[in-house]
């Protein structure tokens, strides 16, 4: 991830700049099918998600069927075809967190936000994902918001936590 930030260091914003960054990624990975996952990974870092038009562009450039690319995109939960919210909540569903009630915390978050797992709220504030063990079992159940780890989260704490992020 760090590498991408360096390679598109101008913080691409316009459509042209975003596609220019994508072209650099395609060049670097020689448009090879065996590099598809890497290319998609970098693309998501550039665009924030994998928009339909971008996947069509990749399909054309790599001479691969869109159906095949879409299959790969939907296979890995890290890939998203929906724009990410301003804040990304990741709930750890590793064994320790799960046993300590991470599923209840997750459901509470989804209920409060009125979305399903993997979706983004209509106001673009939050996206919710799950991850497998983040190696912080002593803090279980743990969640991560924009990379910050929150420990020993309970259902009752969810409301307050969400309020902290605008």
């Amino acid at each position: 991830m760090k590498e991408v930030r360096e390679c598109c260091c101008h913080h691409p914003e316009t459509k042209e700049e975003l596609y220019e960054a994508l072209n650099q990624v395609l060049d670097k990975y020689e448009r090879k099918e065996s590099n598809l996952i890497q290319i998609l990974h970098m693309t998501q870092a550039i665009f924030g998600y994998l928009p339909e038009d971008v996947l069509k562009y990749i399909a054309e450039e790599m001479d691969l069927p869109l159906s095949k690319i879409f299959g790969v995109v939907t296979f890995y939960s890290l890939f998203s075809t929906q724009p990410k919210g301003r804040h990304t909540i990741q709930v750890c569903m590793g064994t320790a967190c799960y046993v300590k009630g991470a599923d209840k915390v997750l459901n509470e978050i989804l209920d409060k936000l009125g979305i399903k797992l993997g979706e983004t709220t209509k106001d673009g504030r939050f996206s919710v994902q799950v991850m497998r063990c983040i190696g912080a079992c002593g803090l279980a159940p743990a969640i991560s918001i924009d990379g910050d780890i929150l420990k020993h989260v309970t259902v009752n704490m969810v409301d307050d936590i969400l309020k902290r992020y605008e």
């Binding site: 069927p65 159906s67 296979f75």
Partner: peptide
């Protein structure tokens, strides 16, 4: 033709 594939997991 390639219009179908295996989606999700």
């Amino acid at each position: 033709v390639n219009v179908i594939g295996t989606n999700s997991r």
